[in-house]
């Protein structure tokens, strides 16, 4: 994956910003990239998202109440792709959505509409092996599972920084450094850290350990206050990662 904005990202650390698919999201995604995001993770909302804390759960409920079903989410993906021709865009969703839409059909349609890869938070590595996607590993993952995920992941590994759901944390988990080491010991694949990264301080700390950071819940909250606020927030993360 390449950065869309060569003027930024001098550290080489990737910044991934998560947003829930809603009608405003293409514009917000553009603001995030203006602020220095390298990758947009686009949440397709599910009614019962087991991995989400309150912020993304509420945002998902709101999006569903506004009619953001799979077809509408694919439309948002396509409009985001039109605004951001160079930026990797990765839909993140739950197996239930693909079960209903059809796994192969989803991959085909989403790629046609601009998806770079996929993240399926409740689809373990052994399920649907034909679906090439970014795999997740957690602090509880065994070495064997980390190795299996690294072997088949699409470009980078998503490290879940904590045992827990998504949502802002005030500090980095003390178990993150040994976890990153454990993953590095078995694979050379780039590792990006997500879950709980909410401030530029945490982004800097996580960026010191990993090849990229993923900011979700806090980005969703800031995006609710508008595109300028989101751009400035992302810029603060970018600066922290590059400093």
């Amino acid at each position: 994956m390449s950065t869309s904005n060569p003027a930024r990202g001098v550290s080489g650390k990737k910044l991934v910003i998560y947003l829930v698919a809603e009608p405003e999201t293409p514009d917000l995604a553009q603001a995030a990239v203006e602020g220095g995001a390298d990758v947009i993770e686009l949440g397709f909302p599910f009614s019962d998202p087991l991995a989400e804390g309150p912020v993304i759960r509420r945002a998902s409920e709101r999006a569903l109440a506004r009619g953001m079903r799979t077809h509408a989410c694919l439309d948002v993906l396509e409009r985001t792709r039109e605004l951001l021709p160079e930026t990797p865009i990765v839909p993140m969703t739950y197996a239930a959505i693909l079960e209903a839409y059809g796994y192969e059909r989803f991959v085909t349609d989403a790629r046609k509409r601009g998806a770079t890869s996929f993240i399926l938070v409740d689809l373990p590595v052994e399920e649907q092996p034909a679906l090439r996607r970014i795999q997740l590993v957690a602090p509880t993952s065994t070495e064997e599972r980390i190795r299996a995920a690294a072997e088949v992941t699409d470009g980078w590994l998503y490290l879940v920084s904590v045992t827990g759901t998504t949502g802002a944390r005030t500090e980095l988990s003390p178990t993150l450094p040994p976890f990153v080491q454990r993953v590095r010991a078995v694979t050379d694949v780039p590792v990006y850290v997500g879950f709980g990264i909410s401030t530029h301080e945490l982004a800097r700390a996580a960026g010191g350990l990993a090849d990229g950071v993923i900011v979700g819940s806090r980005a969703v909250e800031v995006a609710e206050t508008g595109r300028d606020a989101l751009r400035d927030f992302v810029a603060s993360l970018r600066t922290a990662l590059d400093s």
């Binding site: 689809l123 373990p124 509880t140 065994t142």
Partner: peptide, 8 residues
């Protein structure tokens, strides 16, 4: 169909 955290 659960997050990786729970599989182990």
């Amino acid at each position: 169909y659960v997050p990786e955290t729970l599989i182990p």
